[in-house]
């Protein structure tokens, strides 16, 4: 990932020198992007089907959480479905079986996913590069088999008819519009949190590790601690994305923990642009929209996704947002 990363960092540095630190650490061009994103979120439910936009936002948050690892630490996790899916299962289970309120249920889903991230990250960061990808994939497959057998996941049926409940006991979320604002708030909070993490001193160290890990070590940083922390944050946020998705659709199934889901989030981030702030959101929008329109084509969706993978890797490594940023010479 070094080539895109380096060009981006150079562009980023130039941009920061020119525009100063901007508002909340957003550069001027990014601020335009954030405003466009907020405008989209405000208008979308009146133009598009709200449930579709909620799905899009959940996957966008998932892809942003994944991008925190690949884009800013240079670690390719091929097993993020484990955290997304387990977040969905936990939230679905506590909301349905214990009647936990939605906010608490989502927090519990995120916390369990983050706890799994502690273990998974601790094991996986022992190796780098290609091995890291294989290890995360294998660990996620272990979680998948666990979910097939564990009693609380409902096996092949999954957990169905998960109640959305009501927000703080006042606002009924079973209405799609109120659920939409709830989901949008979670997405924006997650998006801003990730942005804050990237622009903190902690995030600067992460980027240093991505660019040159031995040098970061020689400067006195315990790189393993930073990598583990980034992994936990990424896993927890992926869990929250899955948790929210389970409340939106009322189901949590084996699809959420399957390796194909891990592949999908890689694809979304790759299409949008690795290591860009808006790339994962755009990528998620493209892939979710595509799945929506091609749903009746069955296995051809897999073929098309594979073809997009191949095209992106061969000809289009910056992704949509990366290409735009390069064209306009701004940081997005």
């Amino acid at each position: 990932m070094a080539d895109t990363a380096t060009t981006l960092t150079n562009a980023a540095m130039r941009e920061q020198v020119r525009a100063g630190e901007g508002v909340w650490g957003f550069s001027r061009s990014q601020l335009v992007g954030v405003l466009a994103l907020v405008a989209f979120i405000l208008v979308a439910p009146f133009v598009l089907y709200p449930v579709f936009v909620m799905k899009l936002l959940c996957f966008a948050l998932f892809a942003c959480a994944f991008n925190l690892l690949i884009g800013y630490v240079g670690l390719l996790s091929f097993g993020h479905a484990a955290y997304f899916g387990m977040g969905a299962y936990i939230t679905g289970y506590v909301a349905k079986a214990w009647g936990v309120t939605p906010v608490l249920a989502i927090i519990m889903g995120g916390v369990v996913a983050a706890a799994m991230g502690v273990v998974g990250g601790w094991i996986a960061i022992r190796r780098q590069g290609i091995y890291f990808a294989m290890i995360t994939l294998a660990l996620a497959q272990m979680v998948y088999f666990f979910c097939v057998q564990a009693p609380f996941t409902g096996g092949e049926d999954g957990i169905q008819a998960i109640p959305r409940g009501s927000f703080l006991g006042i606002v009924d979320l079973s209405n799609d519009m109120t659920m939409y604002w709830f989901t949008a708030a979670i997405f924006l909070a997650g998006f801003l949190l990730i942005h804050r993490i990237i622009h903190s001193p902690f995030g600067q160290v992460l980027k240093a590790i991505r660019e040159n890990e031995p040098r970061a070590t020689s400067l006195g940083y315990r790189t393993d601690d930073f990598k583990l922390m980034a992994f936990i944050l990424s896993a927890g946020l992926a869990g929250i994305a899955g948790a929210t998705k389970s409340l939106v659709f009322g189901i949590a199934t084996l699809t959420d923990v399957h390796w194909a889901m891990s592949g999908e989030v890689v694809l979304m981030t790759l299409v949008g642009g690795l290591g860009t702030v808006f790339g994962p959101v755009v990528g998620a929008a493209v892939i979710v929209t595509m799945q929506n329109y091609l749903a009746e084509m069955g296995a051809w969706v897999t073929v098309i996704q594979g073809a997009i993978f191949v095209a992106c890797v061969l000809a289009f490594r910056r992704g949509i947002v990366g290409e735009i940023a390069n064209l306009l010479k701004v940081k997005l």
Partner: peptide, 28 residues
């Protein structure tokens, strides 16, 4: 062969895409 000069992870992503294509075609 176009990827040898790039990060090894791109090779993994490319062959993953190829695996999806092959599997999808056979499933169809």
């Amino acid at each position: 062969s176009r990827l040898y000069k790039l990060d090894h992870l791109y090779g993994l992503l490319l062959t993953f895409g190829l695996a999806l294509i092959i599997e999808g075609i056979f499933r169809n």
